[in-house]
Computed example of a mutant assay.
Amino acid sequence: MYPPMHHHADGHPGTIDAAAGHPEYIPKQANYVPPPLFSPNVVAGRVPGRWSTGLCHCCDDPANCFITCFCPCITFGQIAEILSKGSSPCAESGTKYAVLLLTGFACLYSCFYRSKMRGQYDLEESPCVDCLVHFCCEPCALCQEYRELHERGFDMGIGWEANMDRQQRGVTVPPIVTSGMRR
């Protein structure tokens, strides 16, 4: 199943090349740390990326922190519109969040969007599972998600459509070239 191991005189491991019949030298790397055999965050050999800011870095954007503390439905609506690519408008998502906030289930609704965001941008599930982050620290979680989208180039105040228009205006269209000679 595995090629037989061969150790060189200097102690470095190698494998025996079955076709050639001689050992293949594999040098040790100075800072090499072998990957874990199993990690719930590693999918198909990819390691999830880090968030651009920490969960408790709310003071990095004091205006958003203030809005999120006193009216989290605004911040949530902006996040939901971007993550749903415009299919859930800000006002609609924010209203649903506000109604769920009165019942106490808003953290479950917002947890779904955090998971969606992690999937879209391949972010690690930290500092703990998404539902616990939103249940224990809802305003901080919303602020972190808002900052992450902002760091990825979204202007959170203008919505999905306007962000897409901005991106399209930044793209240059090559000139149209006709074939053949003309005089």
Rank of each mutant, 00 (worst) to 15 (best):
A19D: 15
G21S: 08
H22W: 05
P23M: 04
P23C: 03
Q29F: 11
A30R: 14
A30S: 09
N31V: 11
V33W: 10
P35M: 09
L37S: 12
F38K: 14
S39E: 12
V42Y: 01
V43E: 14
A44S: 10
R46Q: 15
V47F: 06
V47Y: 11
R50I: 06
C56F: 15
H57Y: 02
D60A: 13
D60C: 05
P62C: 04
A63G: 07
A63M: 05
C65A: 15
C65Y: 06
F70D: 15
P72N: 13
P72A: 14
P72T: 10
T75K: 04
T75Y: 09
F76R: 01
Q78W: 05
Q78D: 02
I79W: 03
A80V: 08
L83W: 00
S87F: 03
S88Y: 10
A91E: 07
A91Y: 03
A91P: 02
A91T: 07
S93T: 01
T95I: 10
L100V: 03
L102Y: 10
T103D: 14
F105E: 00
A106W: 04
L108V: 11
Y113K: 00
Y113E: 06
K116C: 03
R118M: 05
R118D: 04
D122K: 14
E124Q: 04
S126H: 07
C128R: 15
C128D: 12
V129F: 08
V129W: 09
D130N: 15
C131Q: 06
L132N: 03
L132D: 08
A141E: 01
A141W: 00
A141L: 06
R147Q: 10
R147A: 08
E148Y: 10
L149F: 07
L149R: 02
H150R: 12
H150T: 13
F154E: 02
M156C: 06
G159A: 01
